[in-house]
Structure formats: structure tokens, C-alpha cells
């Protein structure tokens, strides 16, 4: 019948609306459900695998593991990495190839991890740093090997 249908519609409508209001009302009264993270004060806990930028770890003697084989440069899809090599004469008088600068252009990097995978000597890793904003884009072009650094003993 029309009238009962009409009343039913009105009743059902109010019921469904109240259900929704009960849910939002529940969250309104339960402050512990808040999930906001107060970002600059509370630092996010990042996973160790989080891909933030490529870095080259150095040990305490300012030594890295990069042999300058350019495997990462070839693996990179975007031309992010540019390795400039030089020839060094080591203690025994042998000539040896070594890296001069390991140029890493952060603005081109897509954090795909292919360079880290390609590296045969584990010279580069992904770091967790994600706050990359700078005022000058030239700062995005980074040299990963520290000044005066050498290749670690025993890394070929």
C-alpha cells in the first residue's frame, strides 16, 4: 500500500542515516582512535629497505667499495649515475682504474633499486633519507664518494 510504503521509506531512511551518524559519533567521542602523526616532532619509523636515495657508505678510514666498473651506470634507466674514472698508481707501481667522482643526480632518480642490484661489490646502498627538498636544484647533483676517499683493501 502506498501509505505504508511511504512510512517505511521515511523510517528506513532515518535508520540508515542514524547508523552512519552513530559511526562518526563513535569516532568523535573516542580520541584514542586518532591516527594523525605529528610529523616534524614525531619522526616516522621507516623500514630499513625504504628507498630514499642512493648513498655510498664509507668506513672510518674514508674508504669505499666502488671499483668504478660502471655496472650501476649501465643498469640505470634514467642516466642518474655518471662515473668518472681515473688511473691510479698503487703502492707496487701497478696502474689501476679507480673512481674519480661518482656523480649521482637525485632529481632524475626514481628509486628503482636497479643500480644497487647491479653492483657487484655492494658499494652503493639505498638510504632512508626522504627529506630531499633544497632551495637550489644544483644541490641535487651529488658526488657520492667523499673527497680523498680510496677504495677499500681487498675489493676487486
Amino acid at each position: 500500500m502506498f501509505l505504508t510504503d511511504y512510512i517505511k521509506t521515511v523510517y528506513g531512511t532515518l535508520g540508515s542515516l542514524l547508523k552512519g551518524m552513530r559511526l562518526t559519533g563513535y569516532y568523535f567521542t573516542h580520541k584514542k582512535e586518532i591516527i594523525t602523526q605529528q610529523y616534524p616532532e614525531v619522526r616516522p619509523v621507516l623500514a630499513e629497505r625504504f628507498k630514499g636515495e642512493v648513498v655510498m657508505p664509507h668506513n672510518e678510514n674514508n674508504e669505499h667499495r666502488c671499483t668504478g666498473c660502471t655496472a650501476c651506470e649501465l643498469a640505470c634507466p634514467n642516466g642518474t649515475i655518471k662515473i668518472v674514472t681515473k688511473t691510479e698508481v698503487n703502492a707496487e707501481g701497478k696502474k689501476k682504474k679507480a673512481i674519480d667522482t661518482f656523480v649521482y643526480r637525485l632529481e632524475l632518480c626514481t628509486m628503482c633499486n636497479l643500480c644497487v642490484q647491479a653492483c657487484p661489490s655492494d658499494a652503493i646502498i639505498m638510504a632512508n633519507n626522504f627529506e630531499h627538498s633544497v632551495y637550489d636544484r644544483r644541490q641535487f647533483t651529488k658526488v657520492l664518494n667523499l673527497p680523498g676517499s680510496k677504495i677499500m683493501e681487498g675489493v676487486e
Binding site: 569516532y27 568523535f28 580520541k31 582512535e33 586518532i34 591516527i35 594523525t36
Partner: peptide
């Protein structure tokens, strides 16, 4: 504030 609390924000 009301909106935030209902949306589990601050």
C-alpha cells in the same frame, strides 16, 4: 575540530 575528530584526525 569536529570534522577532525570524526575523521580520526587532530
Amino acid at each position: 575540530k569536529v570534522a577532525a575528530l570524526m575523521q580520526i584526525r587532530m
